[in-house]
């Protein structure tokens, strides 16, 4: 019986990597939103443009991961 251990290990490593990366990106996005909230309450005039941009980048990365997931489901 031939068991392809390396394919199994690859699958495990990729799953682990993607999970941690997506959750890290999402957590950074959530943190940026929280910073933006703090910034807008402290200095309403300037707003929190930088945190907002950061949050947008993070959530866009998560959305890209979701889109890739959808193509995997449909293929």
């Amino acid at each position: 019986m031939h068991i392809n251990w390396s394919a199994l290990a690859d699958t495990a490593a990729v799953s682990f990597g993607i999970t941690v990366a997506v959750v890290a990106a999402f957590a950074l996005g959530v943190l940026s939103l929280s910073r933006r909230e703090a910034a807008t309450t402290a200095t309403p005039a300037r707003g929190g443009a930088l945190p907002l941009a950061g949050a947008t980048v993070c959530f866009a990365a998560c959305a890209a991961a979701v889109a890739y997931g959808l193509t995997l489901i449909a293929s």
């Binding site: 959750v23 890290a24 957590a27 959530v30 943190l31 929280s34 910073r35 703090a38």
Partner: peptide, 15 residues
């Protein structure tokens, strides 16, 4: 487990 650790580590500074 890893993702939970990361999520708490990053978001603990936020509200």
């Amino acid at each position: 487990w890893g993702a939970t650790k990361v999520a708490y580590l990053i978001s603990r500074k936020g509200n």
